[in-house]
């Protein structure tokens, strides 16, 4: 059981850390001051949530959070590829934020019922914080997804590009059955179904169109450590200061 639980915690923590880092790249670059602050705040939330998840792993016998976060190479990370993709323009960052955070909010909602008590407690806490993230995403998707031909066109193009990566969030774990049977997590398939319904309920309020789910091909690999060429440079930058003196007291 402990292997399955650790795998689940690693992929969730890595998702939060990597997307937190990408969000932080909007600091000082946002299209509006409020958006600059929003992406910076969500970065702080996500990196903080990754620390809490790495702390749970530490309590299960893994290394300390800083070592886990800053000393692994790309092929040792289990985040989905969606979160490591470069920010590109604001339309892509917004679509990714919407697609990922919708899944993340539902995942933590499901985990409030986890049989692993420390995770259920943490999920109860994080679920509340994520409501602000999904509120932010939904507000902007609804507004820009129904605004001008340019905003609709840009979001549609980013949506079409992001969907296969977004489906990669739900890449099944080799321990899926263990997690479900032991009540730790209800599983990626169930999460994906809830996510598709939620995404549809927002997109249908806009001029955007979702692809036919049956034809969309998921891009898998991230959960097994197979990443795009974008992850290693991100990790190098993120750990640059830490690696100057790994034993420094902060």
């Amino acid at each position: 059981m402990s292997i399955a639980l650790k795998e689940l915690l690693y992929k969730m923590a890595d998702d939060q850390l990597i997307l937190g880092h990408r969000n932080s790249e909007w600091t000082g670059m946002g299209p509006l001051l409020e958006e600059d602050i929003a992406f910076s705040s969500m970065a702080q939330d996500k990196v903080g949530q990754s620390l809490a998840l790495y702390t749970l792993l530490n309590q299960l016998g893994e290394s300390d959070p800083d070592t886990i976060a800053f000393t692994r190479n790309a092929n040792q990370f289990h985040n989905c590829v969606l979160v490591e993709l470069p920010n590109q323009e604001y339309d892509f960052s917004l679509i990714r934020h919407f697609l990922f955070d919708t899944a993340e909010a539902l995942r933590f909602e499901m985990l409030t019922r986890s049989s692993y008590e420390p995770l259920a407690q943490l999920a109860t806490k994080i679920r509340g914080e994520l409501r602000y993230h999904t509120l932010h995403a939904n507000t902007w998707i609804k507004q820009l997804g129904s605004a001008t031909p340019e905003s609709i066109g840009r979001l549609q193009k980013s949506l079409d590009y992001a969907i296969p990566y977004a489906l990669g969030i739900f890449e099944a774990s080799p321990h899926e059955d263990d997690l479900i049977k032991s009540g730790v997590f209800e599983g990626e398939q169930k999460l994906k179904e809830k996510w598709m319904a939620k995404v549809e309920s927002i997109i249908t309020q806009t001029s955007l169109h979702l692809p036919d789910w049956n034809l969309a091909q998921p891009l898998f690999g991230g959960r097994q450590g197979k990443h795009s060429e974008h992850l290693q440079p991100l990790l190098d930058e993120m750990s640059e200061v830490f690696k100057i003196d790994p034993t420094a007291e902060w």
Partner: peptide, 28 residues
């Protein structure tokens, strides 16, 4: 339902004609 966060009374004048500009501010 977070949509109703749109209202909060002003701490200075107690006015209720207020508008949320952003759910994110200078601290979390």
């Amino acid at each position: 339902d977070l949509e109703i966060l749109e209202t909060s009374n002003c701490p200075r004048c107690d006015g209720s004609n207020t508008e949320m500009k952003s759910p994110f501010g200078p601290t979390l």
